[in-house]
């Protein structure tokens, strides 16, 4: 597999990202809209995954420079309910997401065509088309690039873990004792930094593929413009009588899985919990708030109309009162 994204894909979806992520401090990095236009998505044909873990190792090697190096002892946290989350002594853990492991492989024993089979599923951030972790981060530490990558700025994150709470899959993982909160009020606000897959944004900015895609010996993953990836996912699903996950979940994501068995079967078979995301349906988390946007557009006009009606009534009444007074005198 070539390490570079095809010229067509690169031109369609990558140019903006290339310019933007190469100079992350400049304003060309942009938030993307609901449609996913211009966003790059990945397709994971999980029939092919042999669970070798090459993608996991490539991810750790490529992103190792981002891993936290916490200062110990950790600041005493107030109140005491605030728990330290320390993975620095468990860096070797590979069977779940951690601040040192942005990608891991889930295993599901399921029935395929009448026989028992193990399906392996690489799991990492889904890179939602309209990511709640980005939209709801109170500091702007989480951001989305025009190419669909959502990333946490480790220099800005205070580790409040709101992103994990609002993520339908609870993807980001916290490491205490590192980051900006140490310079503010470490005992009273913040608790470290949140970490997750950023789909190798620096590599993508240079027109390269994420490390996990390049390292895979079975060509499980591919990356390309979202509409092309969706089309291909449907073609495969139709061909094998398979199922798709990630196209509509949380309003649409940029990680599209194709499976020969229903995702509800896979979801039942995988180990779920902290750092081990589910494969269940996920409604659009931002939907309700987005519906109120129309109300916000109408509200000022309603206020102006009410004031105009009141003014008209006031003028009418004043005129009538003057007339009554004139008639009486």
């Amino acid at each position: 597999m070539s390490e570079s994204i095809s010229r067509r894909s690169f031109l369609k979806g990558g140019i903006a990202a290339a310019g933007s992520a190469a100079a992350l401090a400049v304003p060309s990095v942009a938030a993307a809209g609901n449609s996913g236009d211009g966003q790059l998505a990945t397709l994971l044909d999980i029939r092919k995954c042999i669970g070798c873990g090459a993608c996991v190792e490539a991810c750790r090697e490529t992103n190792g420079h981002k891993f936290p190096e916490p200062e110990k002892p950790f600041p005493k946290m107030y109140p005491s309910r605030v728990k330290v989350e320390d993975w620095s002594d468990k860096r070797h853990v590979r069977d779940r997401l951690t601040p040192y492991n942005f990608l891991y492989i889930q295993h599901a024993e399921v029935e395929v065509n009448g026989g028992k089979e193990t399906i392996n599923i690489p799991r990492r951030c889904m890179h939602c088309v309209n990511p709640p972790c980005v939209n709801l981060c109170p500091w702007g530490a989480a951001r989305q690039y025009k190419n669909g990558i959502s990333r946490i700025d480790y220099d800005l994150c205070l580790g409040g873990s709101k992103c994990r709470n609002v993520c339908p899959w609870s993807i980001p993982q916290r490491q205490t004792g590192v980051g900006l909160y140490l310079d503010i009020m470490p005992s009273f606000a913040g608790n470290g930094v949140m970490y997750k897959c950023d789909r190798c944004y620096e590599r993508v900015a240079r027109g390269k593929k994420p490390a996990c895609i390049v390292a895979c010996p079975a060509n499980v993953q591919k990356i390309g413009p979202r509409n092309e990836i969706i089309r291909e996912a449907h073609e495969i699903a139709e061909e094998i009588g398979g199922y798709i996950y990630g196209e509509t979940e949380n309003g649409g994501t940029n990680t599209i899985y194709v499976s020969p068995v229903p995702f509800e079967d896979l979801n039942s078979a995988i180990e779920k919990g902290a750092g081990r995301p589910h494969l269940a349906p996920a409604d659009n988390a931002m939907d309700k708030a987005e519906n109120l946007t129309a109300a916000m557009l109408i509200a000022p006009f309603a206020g102006i109309a009410a004031a105009a009606v009141k003014t008209y009534s006031f003028i009418n009444k004043s005129g009538q009162a003057g007339k009554d007074k004139g008639e009486a005198s």
Partner: peptide, 20 residues
């Protein structure tokens, strides 16, 4: 959600006060 709801209401009231 409630913040968005309140924002819609304050926009209406602020517009009303300003117009009045």
């Amino acid at each position: 959600f409630l913040h968005y709801l309140g924002a819609a209401a304050i926009l209406a009231i602020a517009a009303y006060f300003a117009a009045e």
